[in-house]
């Protein structure tokens, strides 16, 4: 008894989803976290609360609203269909949309906390020495907050790997398209195929544990100020 092709497909799909989601979240999340760490406007706390919502909302709430929004009868689903000829529900793109929302706080919060500890006098110094915005970001902010970046990326990736409820509601359980590992596992359990379920459950457990050990080891040993 070993992994069957359909489980390998689910594994590969899950890794792709986690990777795409993490890249999008790092690109979107970094400027957002920077703004949140600097802003003193009251509006910022509304945005901060919005970012944190997926932490406490049941995934079924997100799944339900997404499913409604994805319907071609509604604005988002209708526009997407007109643009791409595809629906958002039951597609990989739809899962990416769901995962970006679902994992947003896991990327933004570590980055924001890293940026809050960043010494802004360094930026002013660099500016007086003629460093441009991109230069300052790439050569000053990222190296000095790399722990926060690593934490954000690892947590965003790991959390997306473990996504279940949202995918269950918007995915449609399609092999190679939306049947991620957690869904394949659920399917095996419900069909009483415990042998295959053990493979996926054990694998996910080991992977998540390894990822967290990597994360905490990194944060503990590379005790760089960030």
């Amino acid at each position: 008894m070993s992994l069957l092709p359909s489980d390998i497909t689910a594994l590969w799909l899950t890794l792709q989803l986690a990777a795409v989601t993490t890249v999008i979240l790092m690109v979107v999340g970094a400027p957002l976290a920077w703004w949140l760490s600097r802003s003193e406007s009251r509006f910022a706390s509304v945005i901060e609360a919005t970012v944190a919502l997926p932490l406490i909302l049941p995934p079924t709430v997100i799944g339900f609203y997404l499913l409604m929004a994805f319907s071609p009868d509604n604005f988002l689903g209708g526009s997407w269909l007109a643009l791409t000829g595809q629906s958002l529900a039951f597609t990989f793109s739809g899962l990416v949309v769901g995962s970006v929302i679902y994992s947003l706080p896991f990327v933004v919060q570590p980055l924001q906390s890293g940026f809050q500890h960043f010494d802004h006098k360094l930026l002013e110094a660099a500016e007086t020495m003629g460093a441009g915005t991109l230069d300052r970001f790439l050569n000053l902010i990222i190296p000095l907050t790399r722990r926060a970046f690593a934490t954000a990326a690892l947590l965003g990736f790991a959390h997306t790997m473990g996504e279940f409820g949202v995918v269950l509601m918007i995915g449609g359980n399609i092999p190679g398209e939306t049947q991620v590992l957690s869904i394949a596992l659920y399917d095996h359990v419900e069909a009483l195929d415990y042998g295959r379920a053990h493979w996926l459950a054990g694998g996910l457990l080991a992977f998540s544990f390894a990822l967290l050990i990597l994360l905490y080891g990194f944060n503990r040993n590379k005790g760089l100020k960030s």
Binding site: L67, M68, F70, S71, P72, D73, N74, G77, S87, A89, F90, G172
Partner: peptide, 8 residues
């Protein structure tokens, strides 16, 4: 429900 919500 997938049908009823207009997604299928």
């Amino acid at each position: 429900q997938f049908f009823h919500s207009g997604n299928a």
